[in-house]
């Protein structure tokens, strides 16, 4: 029973990813001359905090069978709005960012669900538009956040390993996990990702759920941008594509299926932790930047191969070949008389 649960791909993949990277992390002293400190764990969680909410936002849209490319645009806009509206009070900045993120999600969700459009082109357009809007807001320049108290507060060390920023991010993952595992929205989210027609016939409010998913995705990415601006004390109008690529990698490592219908926030957490651990290993071991990229690619390769359906077929076929002839290894067919 337990074994069956562990071998499910949405559990197996993140476990493999976190397991492999945690071992590599623990063995850092073996292959470099540095030792690990508590700060390295803290720093890993800071990397997690930087990317976590974007990965969560992208991941839940992937579970619903969509792909929200605009997360990074919303992330950038959220960071910029936080700096511009939150100079006096951090709360105003967060509210402006999350409100804008949710509004963007609402518009995208209505367009995608209402017109039954594929999400990729719609969110790609939004992504580009948001980068333009963010640049327009900032005049194309990096804007500084002149409230150092907030900056110091969000990154202070709490409970040895954490910061308020990483705790907020972790808390949102746990909240998402509870909601998706414990309520009908969770199963309906996976249902619309798995088979939208069947879900509609079964009475799931597919459109409403899709719109809601994009609203949540927008709000989460904007909040991620807010937290990053607080931490850096500035907002950059173009964060580049790296957050998107790492968020997508984290989602795949976390057992979320590109085809939709499979995945969980805890799996996503595992995926993003694996990404953060790899980044930290590269930092501690002082590897050049390209080595970290090769690591990501390698890990993603392993995970994709582990999940490949054809590999499963090959393994079962080999097993059948290796079975002693005469059906010695077969289970007996049920014997029963009416």
């Amino acid at each position: 029973m337990m074994l069956a649960r562990v071998t499910r791909p949405d559990v197996l993949l993140p476990l493999t990813a976190v397991g492999l990277t945690a071992i590599a992390f623990a063995m850092v002293p073996v292959y470099t001359d540095t030792t690990l400190t508590t700060f390295d764990v803290y720093n890993t969680l800071q990397i997690f905090a930087r990317l976590g909410l974007v990965a969560l936002a992208l991941g839940i849209t992937m579970i619903a069978g969509e792909f929200d490319l605009s997360v990074v645009g919303t992330y950038a806009l959220g960071g910029m709005l936080t700096v511009q509206a939150g100079q006096e009070s951090w709360a105003h900045g967060v509210l402006a960012a999350v409100g804008a993120g949710a509004a963007i999600g609402l518009v995208q969700g209505c367009v995608i669900a209402g017109l039954r459009l594929p999400s990729m082109p719609v969110t790609l357009a939004t992504y580009i538009a948001l980068l333009g809007l963010t640049s327009a807001l900032s005049g194309g320049l990096t804007k500084t956040y002149s409230n150092p108290e907030v900056t110091l507060w969000v990154d202070q060390v709490v409970l040895t390993y954490f910061s308020p920023r990483s705790l907020v991010t972790l808390g949102l993952f746990v909240l998402a996990a509870v909601i998706l595992a414990g309520t009908r929205w969770g199963r309906e989210l996976r249902a619309i990702g798995g088979d939208r027609r069947a879900s509609r016939v079964a009475g799931v409010r597919v459109n409403r759920l899709l719109v809601g998913t994009f609203v949540v995705s927008g709000a989460l990415s904007a909040l991620g941008g807010s937290l990053l601006s607080f931490s850096l004390g500035s907002a950059n109008p173009d964060p580049g594509v790296q957050p998107l690529i790492l968020a997508a990698a984290a989602a795949l490592l976390g057992g979320v299926s590109l085809a939709g219908g499979r995945g969980s926030p805890l799996g996503l957490l595992g995926g993003i932790l694996a990404v953060a651990l790899l980044a930290e290993i590269a930092t501690v071991a002082a590897f050049p930047g390209y080595v970290a990229q090769l690591f990501y690619a390698g890990l993603l390769g392993v995970i994709v191969i582990v999940d490949a359906p054809d590999l499963h077929h090959t393994v079962t076929r080999l097993r059948a070949r290796l079975r002693p002839p005469g059906g010695g290894g077969t289970r007996p067919l049920s014997q029963e008389t009416p």
Binding site: R184, R187, E188, A191, D195, S199, V204
Partner: peptide, 21 residues
Amino acid sequence: VVPSLTVAENLVLGDGRTPWV
């Protein structure tokens, strides 16, 4: 029915009477 869900989840899929799993 949705293959990516469990049997139990499929049995209550679309049923508004069970908000909590």
